[in-house]
């Protein structure tokens, strides 16, 4: 009973901070836009060919944009000492991690999802695929934020954690991108896509259950050093 108001004030703080750092948060979105614009320039302007690749391009762009923003997840809290206080809090640290990751998703994953329809028009993706694209992106980016949080926690104590974070997390993103693009491609091709979507949802649920625990364990190592 008492947990909820406390969590809501923690959540408010995270949203406030995200709002005050909004210029940092615009970067991944801009990056997403640039990837999608450069792609036709680099490959082909042929709409039919682009349409075939569109799910993959949008997914790779969203994944990289997400990766780009992960490094900031715990860094400022680590540097000003707030992270120590979070691990000592009366609230379970996993709930704080869920709060932080949730806000990260709200300010990166969700905007990326909302941007996707606009960009998919530029790649000639059939409009009928849009709802599924957005659904997979929303689920997928949440799972990326959760898994990526572990990597961000492992590298938060390091001076140059950004590149290492990419190396650590990239292999773990493989299933997410396969099932994410797979579902959309299957739908475009008129094939059943429910299995892929179910796999993606299962991955997201699984990471929701496990990732916060591992993230807290990793944060304890970073702080205890």
């Amino acid at each position: 009973m008492t947990l909820l108001p406390l969590l809501s004030s923690v959540f408010r703080r995270e949203m406030q901070l995200a709002y005050r750092r909004r210029s940092d948060l615009a970067n991944p979105l801009l990056f997403f836009l640039i990837v999608v614009v450069l792609f036709p320039l680099g490959v082909t302007p042929d709409m039919a060919k682009l349409a075939e690749m569109a799910p993959g391009v949008l997914w790779v762009g969203a994944l990289l944009a997400n990766l780009l923003s992960l490094d900031l997840l715990f860094r400022s809290d680590y540097e000003d000492g707030s992270l120590e206080q979070m691990l000592l809090a009366a609230l379970p640290p996993t709930s704080l991690v869920v709060c932080k990751v949730g806000v990260h998703w709200l300010v990166t994953g969700l905007p990326l999802t909302v941007m996707a329809p606009l960009l998919s028009v530029m790649l000639g993706l059939p409009g009928s695929a849009l709802p599924l694209l957005m659904l997979t992106l929303a689920l997928g980016t949440l799972s990326l934020s959760l898994i990526g949080g572990i990597g961000a926690a492992l590298t938060v104590g390091l001076q140059k954690g950004g590149l290492l974070l990419t190396l650590l997390i990239m292999p773990l993103f493989v299933p997410v991108i396969i099932f994410g693009t797979g579902a959309v491609q299957a739908q475009v091709a008129g094939l059943p896509w429910l299995a892929q979507l179910a796999m993606l949802a299962a991955m997201t649920t699984g990471s929701l259950a496990l990732a916060p625990l591992l993230t807290v364990a990793a944060l304890r190592i970073a702080v205890g050093d």
Binding site: I147, I150, L154, L168, L172, L214, A217, A218, I221
Partner: peptide, 8 residues
């Protein structure tokens, strides 16, 4: 840290 990553 590596142990956690290996578990993931």
């Amino acid at each position: 840290a590596a142990a956690i990553l290996a578990l993931v």
